[in-house]
Nucleic acid binder design. Structure first.
Lengths: 245, 245
DNA sequence: TCAGCTCTTTGATCCACGTCAACCCCTTTG
DNA sequence: CAAAGGGGTTGACGTGGATCAAAGAGCTGA
């Protein structure tokens, strides 16, 4: 279905304007005729298979990417091979902003499931955003949001204990699924315990134990990657107390 | 001296074009006549006394700030009062980018010493960067650099042990002092052990002990806030080994 | 359908860093 | 110059989460 869409000209033409992710993505706040102009430069689309990389650290930077379907993780690697996951990205979110500063990417972006992204050539985006004020502003907001998000992760890594981190993670995922029209209470995590652990600055065993504890206490029901949140307020309260630093 | 400069019209006119920080700041990469246009909108300057706040979380966002003299820390606060320092900023660096996304600031910016910033009204910056391509691009680079920096901090907080974190911090400070024409080997830290600890996700005692250890091992000489780096390669090697996650 | 994966869970043990507490050194102020 | 207070250092001790180990549970592919 997706494939047949992808090759029909109407679909290409109507990319952003018909996309149900526009509220979350670059077209947010644009007038209809402005979205049409954005469509023109977002022609190309790219499929990325599960475990394949959209880009790697060091790759030359040419475009940013909007996730149309699927999800990704981004990570940076130390010389000794250890990995730090810097984020998980869902549909409508923008990948590749790290590449602007040095003109090549500084992290790796890996698909967590078979995914598809809209390729947005950066030079053309800058060009268009010089003409379209609302696009310029929305793009700045997207970048700024990434900075704010990163500060939240620092808070998490620097000041919270293991169970708080996982609670914050689950609440964040829940809220993002909800924003995309999915259930806030029940969802599939596409990443492994190891990847969650890397993101949260914990070992996978600690993540697993925290999940078990939450389940024992009746906050969530966990079956492998399938999560059901049973007591969202309980999780929120868990967050409130117990800072470490 | 600074005060007398600040009120002379030439000085206001020549702000960016004569500023020795242009290489590090927004004017980087602009042609001379473009810098002149930037000067026009960077008229206002603001002094911030040590310990005073340039802005607070929740303040309406109207401008970003370039640090002319002095230094700052930014932090976010949890409801329970615990603080996470998200960064230390030096001359030429830009403060306030977090405010763009929600139209109000999401963190606090506090001067670590008596400081002065250039106020850059954001609406006018967006306006000008629609006209001046090189300014637009440099601004995007500045935002992107902040994102890359944040990823580095995540790496630090999520994957490094205490001594590695402090070593990374010292090397980073050293490099930034050097970029500003100061000694890379000898400098004054403007922040307390507690603030360093908050930034690095450690308690102040742990920071203090790590300083002592580095001193015992001959890597640095530490006298309160005065640091002399004696063996920069030793510090770098310390970074290479010993990841935790 | 089975073999060989990878991912997850759980238990036992260890240790890096947090916590608590005492003391020291500067700096500031009257 | 004395007193007060804010940093900073150091020691003793406790603990949250890492580490090591083993077994179970789901996929994947022949």
């Amino acid at each position: 279905m997706k494939a047949s869409f992808a090759i029909t000209p109407q679909y290409v033409k109507a990319a952003c304007s018909q996309c149900n992710l526009r509220e979350l993505c670059l077209p947010f706040g644009l007038a209809e005729h402005e979205v049409d102009r954005l469509d023109e430069l977002v022609g190309a689309r790219r499929k990325v298979k599960r475990q394949a990389q959209l880009y790697r650290a060091g790759d030359p930077f040419e475009a940013i990417y909007a996730i149309r379907t699927g999800s990704f993780k981004t990570d940076v690697l130390l010389e000794d091979g250890r990995e730090q996951v810097t984020g998980f990205q869902m549909t409508g979110e923008i990948l590749g902003l790290d590449g602007i500063s040095a003109e090549n990417h500084s992290c790796n972006a890996t698909a967590l499931e078979d995914s598809e992204v809209c390729v947005i050539p950066f030079a053309r985006l800058e060009e268009l955003s010089r003409e379209v004020e609302s696009l310029q502003h929305q793009f700045h907001k997207v970048m700024s949001r990434e900075i704010v998000r990163d500060h939240g992760v620092m808070m998490l890594l620097g000041s919270m204990r293991a169970e708080e981190r996982l609670a914050a993670f689950l609440l964040n995922m829940s809220q993002r699924f909800m924003a995309r029209g999915f259930s806030a209470a029940e969802f599939h995590l596409r990443m492994t315990r190891d990847e969650i652990g890397s993101y949260l600055g914990l070992k996978l065993e600690t993540v697993s134990r925290a999940f078990s504890k939450f389940q024992d206490e009746g906050f969530v029901s966990v079956q492998q990657k399938h999560i059901r949140i049973l007591d969202i307020d309980g999780l929120k309260q868990l967050l409130g107390r117990c800072a470490r630093n």
